[in-house]
Computed example of a mutant assay.
Amino acid sequence: MITHKLPPNFRDLGGHPTANGTAVTPGRIFRSSQLSGMPEGMVRGLEELGIRFIYDFRTAAEREQYPDVPMPGVQNVWLDVLSNDPGSLAAMMQQLLQEPRKLSQDLTPEKVEALYGTVYENLVSLPGACKAYGAFFSSLLQDSGTPRVFHCTAGKDRTGWAAAMLLLLLGVSHEDVLADYLASNEQLLQGYSSTIEAFVAAGGDRAVVESLIRAHPEYLEAGLASLMRTYESISNYFSRGLGISLEEQSTLILAYTS
């Protein structure tokens, strides 16, 4: 039983039922927002879960500005998903939130949504993204019983894509995958509430900042549509795009379902 508060947008991917009658094994893989500035209690919460690997999908600039809190005995693995696109909306979110008036003049909610659709298409197509996700899923094959967490900044886009791909590979339904993806919204709007109010107070547009922070089903669907155009199936995406062979895919399924 966890007795300490956990980071924002943190949750276990375990428990989802799969098509073959099993379920994703709980207590193995967790998703989160960035682990910077964590108070002692949150660190204790991660320690209680037995976390031994932290995968950081952020850019170098994000990591430098908001470094993860170091944890004894925990290996921090840097996998820069947007190395080919460091100016991406997903990578620049925190910086953009500091410029309320400029952001609200430059963007509308519709423009934000269009830009995020491109972000998700890039998560499928960019070589750096394929390399990073390939390394991530390959790492999951090692010490599969060891609890681990992966994150980006808000834990909704780069992290959301990785979570969705893993769950789909394991046989979780599209409906449940989408529900897990959208579960970020309540936590993020609550976690960023003071940031949103400060943004609006400084002259920013509430609709713009909420569009920037929220996860929308259209974003995930844009990525999936790009995946299907290029690879035709989740399995082909893993094998041809990420370098995870069919045998390794089967190993992942056996390792993370029960």
Rank of each mutant, 00 (worst) to 15 (best):
D80K: 04
P72S: 15
P39I: 15
R63P: 04
M38V: 05
N84Y: 07
Q75P: 00
G37Q: 13
M42Y: 05
S36F: 09
A60Q: 10
V81G: 01
A60T: 13
M71D: 03
E48A: 09
N84M: 08
R44S: 15
Q65T: 11
P70F: 00
E40I: 10
A60I: 15
Q34P: 00
V77Y: 03
P67Q: 06
N84G: 15
E48P: 03
R44D: 11
A61G: 06
T59D: 01
F53H: 10
Y66N: 13
R44G: 05
S33I: 02
V77G: 04
V74R: 02
D80G: 05
M42K: 14
Q75R: 14
F57D: 00
M71I: 13
Q34K: 12
V69L: 03
P72R: 14
G50L: 01
Q34N: 11
L82Q: 09
A60V: 11
E47V: 08
R58A: 12
P39M: 08
W78Y: 12
V69K: 10
L49S: 13
N76E: 13
Q34V: 08
E48Y: 09
E64W: 07
R44V: 10
V81L: 07
V77S: 07
E64R: 10
G37K: 09
G50N: 04
Y66Q: 12
Q34C: 12
L49Q: 11
G41Y: 07
L46K: 02
S36A: 15
M71P: 00
P70Y: 03
P67I: 09
R58P: 01
G41T: 14
F57G: 07
Y55C: 01
V43N: 05
Y55A: 03
E62M: 10
E62H: 09
L79K: 05
R44A: 15
E64Y: 07
D56V: 00
R58V: 10
S32H: 00
Q34I: 09
L82D: 04
V77K: 08
V69W: 01
E64A: 13
T59N: 10
R58N: 05
R52Y: 00
P39L: 05
R63Q: 09
G73S: 06
V77R: 10
D56K: 03
A60R: 12
Q75H: 04
Q65N: 11
Y66S: 12
D80R: 09
A60S: 13
S83H: 10
P67F: 04
A61L: 09
R58E: 08
P70A: 08
S36M: 08
G73M: 00
A60H: 14
T59S: 13
E48T: 07
R58I: 13
S32Y: 02
V74W: 06
F53K: 14
G37R: 11
D80T: 12
G41C: 07
P70K: 08
R58Q: 12
Q34M: 11
E48N: 04
L82P: 03
Y55T: 06
L82W: 00
W78I: 12
V43L: 08
V81W: 01
I54R: 02
P70E: 04
V77A: 02
E62N: 08
P72Q: 14
E47S: 15
L35M: 08
L79Q: 04
V69M: 02
L35C: 03
P72H: 07
L82C: 09
T59I: 09
G41D: 13
G45W: 06
L46R: 08
I51W: 01
M38T: 06
